[in-house]
């Protein structure tokens, strides 16, 4: 099992919430930067699937996502995280650290380190399954001048 530094094991404060929506749920996350908002959004998604307190950090996987605009970047980022959970390594994450965040140019790019462990029924309470990420009512508030960074994403459950 890989060794993690205390810094790596420390969890960030929660900066997300779940909003009303008829059949699905809307994730609302924020942060001091767009990067933080993205990270929090990913955690919010995992948080809906189980109780994050039960998740220990035992392994780290890296994911990459691309997009042609911020919306598609967010979409593919969350999709990659979902994929990480749905198949090998069946990872449920309690902490995400974005190491690369390229939003200039045609091809936007994210690289992210995902800290967590393999989902184990019995250890991790079963929450709600996330079936897909949608573009529906997706909003990205990116206002550096006001230090306002928020994301709204509806996930299909």
């Amino acid at each position: 099992m890989p060794e993690f530094t205390p810094e790596e094991l420390a969890l960030p404060p929660q900066k997300y919430e779940y909003l009303d929506h008829t059949a699905d749920v809307q994730l609302h996350s924020w942060g001091n930067s767009l990067i933080e908002a993205f990270e929090q959004c990913g955690i919010a998604m995992f948080g809906y699937m189980t109780e994050l307190e039960s998740v220990e950090i035992k392994q780290c996987s890296e994911i990459e996502a691309t997009g042609h605009d911020l919306e598609s970047l967010l979409f593919h980022f969350l999709d990659e995280l979902l994929f990480l959970f749905s198949c090998e390594p069946f990872l449920i994450c309690s902490k995400l650290v974005i190491t690369e965040f390229m939003t200039e140019g045609e091809e936007m790019h994210i690289k992210c380190k995902c800290y967590g462990e393999e989902f184990t029924i019995g250890k991790h309470p079963q929450g709600t399954e996330v079936k897909a990420i949608t573009y529906s009512a997706m909003q990205i508030v990116n206002e550096p001048e006001q230090n306002n960074f928020e994301l709204f994403v509806i996930i299909d459950i």
Binding site: E88, K131, I157
Partner: peptide
């Protein structure tokens, strides 16, 4: 390939929701 990878472990499960 993604869809197939997602589907394989889940065949024969009830799901949630």
């Amino acid at each position: 390939m993604r869809a197939k990878k997602r589907g394989l472990p889940q065949l024969g499960t009830l799901g949630a929701g």
